[in-house]
Amino acid sequence: MTSTNVSSKSNFYFKSYKKERLMLWELIRINSKTYTRKLISIILFFLLWEFLCWIDFNFIINFVFVPTPVEVINAFIQFINDSPWVHFKASILRVIGGFISGSILGIFVGLLIGSSKILEDFLATPLELLRPIPAVAWIPLAILMFPDAESGMYYITFVGAFYPILISTQKAVENSLSDRLMIRVGQSLGANSFQLFKDIILPSSLPGISAGLVIGMGNAWFCLVTAEIIAGRFGIGYKTWESYVISEYPPIVMGMVLIGLMGAFSSFVVLKITDSFMPWRTISKDGI
């Protein structure tokens, strides 16, 4: 049960009647319930994992070689003691670089093909043909096409981020363009095409674009291991891959968990930032 009122500050007085009834202590109570539940779910997850390793579970899925949570934590402590910052920095830069370039290009092209039939006809088909190609399949070309390994790696995370952002933006714009009422409102108040785009189409597309950015950020992390296979000596993905090559299992799982954590965290940050651009929305879940 969550109730998020994204609007803030001066709009405090205009919260709906039902929201006003949520006194502070009620909010705390509801939220603390959520946090407790979330904490319990995490603990149960690790306990289950430990348990399956402990009994050497082996039915369809084999847990015999899976490192236990404790082993993974030990691998993490070792990793932390051994100058981890270079790895973090390398990976974070690759993900952020791919994400930012993917966002800029994805939003730009998405706005174009979402709002223009001609541009859609020219651009959409080749983009659509390239879209299903998985990041791994890009590795050889990325090595051949880019001057150095680093830019090749940026390219792979870029591909991961670009497509969800592109498609979400395009669909969001098309959806906004189908809202005849808002377009007529703008027209009858005297907006020209550019003003209509800036004041009506773009803001109404923001929720869709935001979803694309959140998925794109996750996808950039998703593609990180693939990217860091290309080359290099640094990076969380590289570390994971290297451990696999030398058959050291705990660091693999550690790398996976780290990527999961950082991916989830950065998606969360993107979500919060984009939400702050949409203060007009009131989101009610579970009928609160």
Binding site: S7, S10, N11, F14, K15, W280, R281, T282
Partner: peptide, 8 residues
């Protein structure tokens, strides 16, 4: 209500 959003 000048600062209110329409859904309010």
């Amino acid at each position: 209500y000048r600062k209110a959003y329409p859904n309010q």
